[in-house]
């Protein structure tokens, strides 16, 4: 069991997973999103190789209307 903080929400997962697997679970595969892990950008091209670990703080963002 690992716990990740995603956009400020604590979420538990039964086993370790990659960034690509998390994005899939959240329904964002193929969507225009960007991911930050513990303050560092995770390039989309490295999602499959990026192993997430217990306690990671993740931010998943999109573009929205703004001035």
């Amino acid at each position: 069991m690992i716990t990740l903080s995603i956009n400020g929400e604590s979420r538990q997962f039964p086993a370790a997973l990659t960034a690509a697997e998390l994005i899939e679970i959240l329904g964002y595969t193929g969507k225009r999103i960007a991911l930050e892990r513990n303050g560092e950008i995770v390039p989309r091209s490295t999602f499959a190789a990026q192993q997430l670990t217990d306690g990671d703080k993740l931010e998943v963002v999109v573009a929205v209307g703004g001035g």
């Binding site: 956009n7 329904g27 931010e59 573009a63 929205v64 001035g67």
Partner: peptide, 20 residues
């Protein structure tokens, strides 16, 4: 055009219309 960068809404349907 300016746009803002915000957290995705985790509870929301990911297929909602999108600014892009």
């Amino acid at each position: 055009v300016t746009v803002a960068i915000r957290r995705t809404n985790l509870g929301q349907n990911p297929n909602e219309p999108n600014l892009l």
